[in-house]
Amino acid sequence: MIPTTYLFVPGNRPERFAKALASGADRVILDLEDAVLPADKSQARHAIGAWLATLENAARANILVRLNDALSPWHTDDLEWLSAQPLGEVMLSKCESAVQVASVHARMAPSAQVLPLIETVRGVMGLNDIVSSPHVSRLAFGSIDYQLDLDLPGPGFALDAAATAIAMASRAADLPPPVAGVTPELAAERVNADLLHARALGFTAKLCIHPTQVGVVREALRPDAQTLAWASRVNSAWQTGSGQGAIQVDGRMVDKPVVLRAQRILALADLTH
């Protein structure tokens, strides 16, 4: 099942780890980057490693760790630590190349994956290279850091252009649709609005910074009853009339592209159930 909600937890707050895992988020991201001060990063690595060792494989499969970026002074220590961790997936901050992905993956099991977080102009410019790596699980957009990198005053065309490029690169590489960036505000209305905007740009998942955002995102992604009923009617009619080039549903002609959209709606409903 493709995850739709990713919940960040500071890596130096082990008392929050289990609560995050029980929050209902599809994935929990234990953070070694922005949420942890430089002086606390070693402690955070130790806390994460100790907790991972207590988990069963099924629970551990829902855990990612966000590493410091390849140009940071903490990246080498992250990689040395990673070599001893039973992780199936990690997030790489400010990813800008397939070489960076490969360097991280070299410290993991062959079947492990890397989730590049695109947060810079260089990262957007290097999308084709990044998605060429066979070890990439999907892409995520660090929209706040991207605004800072390009010195944008706020959301707008430039931010949407980068988001669209990430969605297009994901589709071209047959990756799952990307993960939208965080919403700093906790108000449900703001989270919902940001998610719907990201959805219009081709994103089907979101990074969360608080457990309350998880349910808001899942509800915003869930097709409404009317849309779901339409999708069910289309899919059922298509299955019944298989072999026909087009069918009629609700007085309208329906061909294969419309059926595929209906099937995607049904699949999204399953993911957000």
Rank of each mutant, 00 (worst) to 15 (best):
V36I: 09
A102Y: 05
L87A: 09
C95W: 01
A109F: 03
V124Y: 01
L52S: 09
A22R: 10
P38K: 03
L37W: 06
L115R: 15
V104A: 01
R107P: 01
D78Q: 09
A106N: 11
S72L: 11
F17Q: 11
L30Y: 11
E89S: 12
N68Y: 08
Q43G: 08
A58W: 01
H105Q: 15
D31Y: 01
D145Q: 10
G126C: 02
H75L: 07
Y146P: 07
L64A: 09
S111V: 15
S23F: 02
A39K: 07
P116H: 10
V124M: 00
K41C: 02
A25D: 00
S23C: 05
S23I: 04
S97V: 04
I130Y: 06
A20P: 04
A61S: 13
P38N: 04
L21G: 03
V114C: 10
V136I: 04
D40W: 00
V28C: 02
L52C: 12
V121A: 15
N128G: 12
S111C: 11
A53C: 06
S143G: 06
P38D: 04
R66C: 13
T54S: 13
G142I: 12
V101F: 06
V114K: 08
D26E: 06
L52F: 06
L37D: 06
A50T: 08
V121G: 07
A39P: 00
A22E: 15
G24L: 11
F141G: 10
L115M: 15
L92K: 04
M91W: 07
Q43K: 14
A98C: 08
S103K: 11
I63Y: 02
A39Y: 00
E96L: 05
E33M: 08
H105T: 09
H75V: 07
A109L: 14
A20Q: 02
W51E: 02
V124I: 09
F17A: 13
L55W: 09
I48K: 09
D78H: 07
L150R: 15
V28W: 00
R107E: 08
Q43D: 10
E89M: 14
N57W: 08
S137L: 01
S93C: 13
A109R: 15
D40E: 15
L32S: 03
Q113H: 13
G88K: 05
S111G: 10
S97F: 01
A22M: 05
R60C: 14
A58G: 04
Q85T: 03
I29Q: 05
G49E: 09
D40Y: 00
E15A: 14
D31I: 02
A106E: 14
A47K: 03
A59P: 01
G24D: 10
L117P: 07
G126M: 01
S132Y: 05
L139S: 06
S83H: 09
L64F: 13
R138T: 14
Q147D: 04
E119V: 12
S111P: 02
V101L: 09
E89P: 00
I63L: 12
E119R: 06
D149N: 14
S93K: 12
L37E: 13
V99P: 00
S143L: 05
Q147V: 02
E33C: 05
L71W: 08
S103W: 04
V36W: 00
K19H: 03
V104T: 04
A47V: 04
V136N: 01
I48Q: 03
S133M: 11
V114Y: 14
L148G: 07
N128Q: 14
S42M: 02
